[in-house]
Write a protein that binds this DNA or RNA. Structure first.
Length: 211
DNA sequence: TGCCAGGCCCTCTTTAGGGCCTT
């Protein structure tokens, strides 16, 4: 069976009413880009109505207003559609545990579940960009020399910029360690290993590479 | 209206605590 390559994934981002679906927070926007061999081949972006008014803090933070959400489809309708978009694909998100919680919570409401694998670009960045001042998306883009392509804190723009950050990390690993292809599983493993062993791990991949 | 969480990571650690990151 052919291994899944790290540059063929769906990168997603949620804007939400707060931090915790456990306490009733809901998604208000989803943005995602489908990467295929390192190129964006499809985009998904939808605002969605959570069924209650969002706070002024979230309006200010995201730029998404209650007015913008009125008349938008309900979360259930959007998530059913998005479920088809990610079916059969691995996903990447910045601080993926956050987005995965909302993904699982919203899909559960439409009696669906995501069964693929999920990798966190934040955790990988802590290995690859150890000298970055911090590992916020905005800082990492600047640190990696990745151009800003949209407004931060909007789902599609954040997903797209996370995708370019993700690709830059793959490319950095490939060049620095002379690895011909980086698999999704290797990036997942990298995100989990101890930071101190990053160099050793990547070197071991280069040793077994089929260049 | 304001509040809420959770997983990872580091260190003055592991019988713990606090910072980071996401909205």
């Amino acid at each position: 069976m052919q291994k899944a390559l790290a540059d063929s994934v769906v990168v997603l981002d949620f804007e939400t009413t707060g931090l915790s679906p456990q306490y009733g927070d809901r998604a208000i926007e989803i943005g995602a880009v489908w990467l295929e061999e390192g190129r964006i081949v499809e985009r998904f972006q939808k605002l969605m109505n959570p069924g209650f008014r969002i706070s002024r803090f979230i309006e200010g933070y995201t730029g998404i207003t209650n007015e913008m959400l009125s008349g938008q489809p309900r979360c259930e309708e959007v998530m059913a559609e998005f479920s088809e978009f990610i079916d059969g694909r691995n996903i990447v998100a910045h601080n993926a545990s956050f987005d995965k919680r909302f993904l699982d919570s919203e899909l559960k409401r439409v009696n669906r579940a995501y069964k693929g694998d999920c990798c966190c670009s934040l955790l990988v960045s802590r290995r690859v960009f150890q000298n970055s001042p911090n590992h916020k998306l905005q800082t990492l883009l600047s640190h990696a020399g990745v151009p800003k392509t949209g407004d931060f804190h909007r789902a599609l723009a954040d997903a797209e910029m996370t995708a370019y950050l993700w690709l830059s990390m793959i490319e950095r690993i490939r060049r620095q360690y002379r690895i011909s292809e980086v698999s999704f599983d290797q990036m997942s493993e990298l995100s989990k290993i101890d930071k101190l062993y990053t160099h050793r791990y990547l070197t071991s991949l280069a040793d077994t590479s089929e260049i």
